[in-house]
C-alpha cells in the first residue's frame, strides 16, 4: 500500500540569530502516521513542528504540506493553517470567549460555516473530549486538563488533516495528564496524522509509528518504538533515555 505523503521537509535549516536551531532536517510524514518527537530542551523539537504551520519561518530548505510549499505567500500559509491543527503547551484558549465560542470561532470566520452549524459541530467535538457540559463556561473556570481537552476540540473543529501537539501535557498537574493522553490516543486510533512533541514515553510506546530523537537541531535517531527503546544507536539517545525512563 502506497500511502499519501502529508508533510515533506527536505534539508530544512533555521537560525535564531547565531543559533542554528534546525540543522538539515529531512522528514517525511505519510497519511495516518503518528510521530513522536522527543529530545532535551533547546533541541529544536518545538521549532520543528512550529515550522510546519509557519509559526516559525525556516530559512533554507523546503517544507511541503499536502502538496503546498510553505513560502512567504500568505495564501499558501493560510491554506496550510486551515489543514493543520495545533495544540499548545499553555493551551492558549481565548480567555474572553466561552469554550463553545473558542471552538466555533475559526470555523465561522475561516471556514465561513453558518453559525448554527459551527456550534453544532463544536458541541459534537466537545462531547468527544467529554467536556460538552462545560461548553458555556469561560476557560478560566476550567481545570488545566479540561482546558487542554477544549483546546484539542477547538483544533478538531477545523477538521484538520494533520494535528501538531507541542508538549500538550507539560503544563498539567500529574493527575490530569491521563485524561488528555486518553483523548490523544482516541484521536490516533481514529487515523489522524499526528506529530507530537512530548516526553510521555508511555504514550509514545502505545501509539507512535515512529519516534524521533532530536539534539542540537538535528534528528539523531528515527525508529519505530520497539527498536527505539531496545536498540538506540547513538550515545546521546541512550543518555537521554536513561535520564527520563
Amino acid at each position: 500500500m502506497t500511502s499519501e505523503t502529508m508533510i515533506e521537509m527536505s534539508s530544512v535549516h533555521k537560525w535564531f540569530g547565531e543559533l542554528h536551531v534546525l540543522n538539515d532536517i529531512n522528514l517525511k510524514v505519510t497519511k495516518g502516521e503518528k510521530i513522536v518527537i522527543c529530545g532535551p530542551s533547546g533541541s529544536g523539537k518545538s521549532t520543528l513542528i512550529r515550522c510546519i504551520n509557519r509559526l516559525e519561518e525556516h530559512q533554507r530548505g523546503e517544507i511541503v504540506v499536502e502538496g503546498t510549499e510553505l513560502t512567504n505567500d500568505n495564501r499558501s500559509v493560510e491554506k496550510i493553517r486551515g489543514e493543520v491543527g495545533m495544540v499548545f503547551q499553555q493551551f492558549n484558549l481565548f480567555p474572553h470567549l466561552s469554550i463553545l465560542d473558542n471552538c466555533s470561532l475559526a470555523p465561522i470566520w475561516v471556514r465561513k460555516l453558518p453559525k448554527v452549524e459551527a456550534r453544532e459541530k463544536a458541541m459534537e467535538y466537545l462531547k468527544r473530549v467529554q467536556i460538552d457540559d462545560q461548553a458555556h463556561k469561560y476557560p478560566a473556570q476550567l481545570s488545566g486538563g479540561q482546558q487542554q481537552r477544549a483546546a484539542i476540540a477547538r483544533a478538531l473543529c477545523m477538521e484538520p488533516r494533520i494535528m501538531l501537539f507541542d508538549e500538550p501535557t507539560s503544563a498539567l498537574d500529574p493527575e490530569m495528564i491521563k485524561e488528555v493522553l486518553d483523548v490523544m490516543v482516541g484521536l490516533a486510533e481514529g487515523g489522524m496524522t499526528m506529530l507530537v512533541v512530548t516526553h510521555e514515553m508511555g504514550f509514545a510506546k502505545e501509539v507512535a509509528d515512529k519516534i524521533i530523537f532530536m539534539d542540537e537541531g538535528q534528528i539523531v535517531e528515527s525508529k519505530n518504538p520497539t527498536d527505539f527503546f531496545a536498540n538506540p544507536e547513538s550515545e546521546r539517545t541512550k543518555t537521554f533515555l536513561s535520564q527520563i525512563l
Partner: peptide
C-alpha cells in the same frame, strides 16, 4: 500564545 493560537487557527 494568543497571537500564535489565532494564527494556527488560520485567522
Amino acid at each position: 500564545g494568543q497571537y500564535e493560537a489565532s494564527q494556527a487557527a488560520g485567522l
